[in-house]
Design a protein around this nucleic acid. Structure first.
Length: 342
DNA sequence: GTTAGGG
DNA sequence: CCCTAAC
């Protein structure tokens, strides 16, 4: 009989990738049986997972006529929301149009292969700064409970699986790791890395807003301390990335966290060049309302906004109420399968 | 029974 | 997707 050869859906691919991040490659049966992913992979066998992963890998490695950046659903959403490559030239003002465009695309209809002019920021522009989130993501995803470390080769292969690295990509990741160790964000143990738990950097440049992040805290037991947000030594961006990834480690939702980190990072870049805080706040809150996941990003939004300008408090509380009413914060502790967009 | 690889 | 060798 013929073989229908049913095509893999984006959800299935995402479940597969998440499963690999959790169990590692080669544990196909575990992934297939894992209750987290089985709902999406029930029709696939372990051998199917293996074959699919082989195809996906070769698609990423082959630079022939497969220009698709291999974006997951969430990736596509974020990519679509990044219309500007953030030129090196310090743009004096971010045109309101930019912010408008950023929040414009309703992420409800995101097809993976459509003709939407997704900006190819992944080619060469600012690719170096994009390694950090992936590194954190890899560590968060691959850290095993017993050893609590991640081998460097695992980190690199993890990143390569997500996006093909340029010729010197491996080198850059390595230097990036080294740099992060120097900054005491990571800890190196032989050939493995882990998150540095106790950060000896002096401390507690108490943010101007003391009550902002805490009052709502309904987002499960996310260990979010004010010291995680800002250290006097580091930039806000680094602190945000680090803390978000720490949360990711705790929640084991690395992919979601990575997207959130990208978002925070991008918005912070945006904010540093300009001080259009109102647009910033509106933008990030729009994001929070559209996507059901970003519980902690929401907290950071409050923190960032208020840190930049105390005048935003009205905006913040307003947005807080709005977000609460939409009930968009319920995902943090759910089964973990309901995360991505449909 | 599972996985890796060739077909 | 199927088949097979290897573990």
């Amino acid at each position: 009989m013929g073989n229908p050869k049913q095509k893999w859906t984006a959800k299935e691919e995402e479940a597969l990738r998440a499963g690999i991040a959790k169990h590692g490659t080669g544990k196909w049966k575990n992934i297939q049986q894992d209750p987290e992913f089985n709902p999406h992979l029930s029709t696939r066998s372990n051998i199917d997972l293996k074959d699919k992963w082989r195809n996906m890998s070769v698609g990423s490695g082959e630079k022939s006529r497969t220009p698709k950046p291999k974006l997951a659903a969430a990736d596509a959403a974020v990519a679509a929301a990044v219309p500007m490559p953030i030129a090196q030239a310090p743009a004096p003002l971010p045109t309101p149009a930019a912010a408008a465009v950023a929040i414009a695309p309703t992420s409800t209809d995101v097809t993976m292969e459509d003709t939407k002019p997704v900006v190819m920021v992944g080619t060469e522009v600012k690719i170096a700064s994009k390694y950090d989130p992936m590194i954190f993501e890899a560590i968060a995803a691959l850290t095993r409970v017993e050893t609590n470390v991640v081998d460097i080769s695992a980190i690199i292969s993890f990143i390569e699986q997500r996006q093909e690295l340029p010729q010197n990509g491996r080198k850059q990741v390595t230097s990036r790791l080294r740099r992060l160790v120097q900054k005491e964000k990571l800890e190196k143990i032989q050939n493995s890395y882990r998150f540095k738990e106790s950060n000896p950097t002096t401390v507690t440049n108490a943010p101007p807003v003391t009550q902002a992040p805490s009052p709502k805290k309904e987002v499960k037991s996310i260990p979010l301390k004010s010291t995680d947000l800002v250290t006097s030594d580091e930039t806000v961006e680094e602190a945000a990335v680090s803390a978000a990834c720490r949360i990711a480690e705790a929640e084991n939702k690395s992919f979601v966290a990575a997207e959130a980190v990208k978002e925070v990072e991008r918005i912070l870049e945006f904010a540093e060049e300009s001080e259009s805080n109102l647009q910033l706040a509106n933008q990030i809150f729009e994001k929070c309302k559209q996507n059901t996941f970003v519980g902690f990003v929401y907290d950071y939004a409050i923190f960032i906004s208020v840190s930049l300008s105390a005048n935003l408090e009205s905006q913040v509380s307003k947005a807080k109420q709005s977000s609460k009413n939409t009930g968009s914060l319920d995902m943090a502790g759910s089964q973990g399968e309901t995360v991505m967009l449909s």
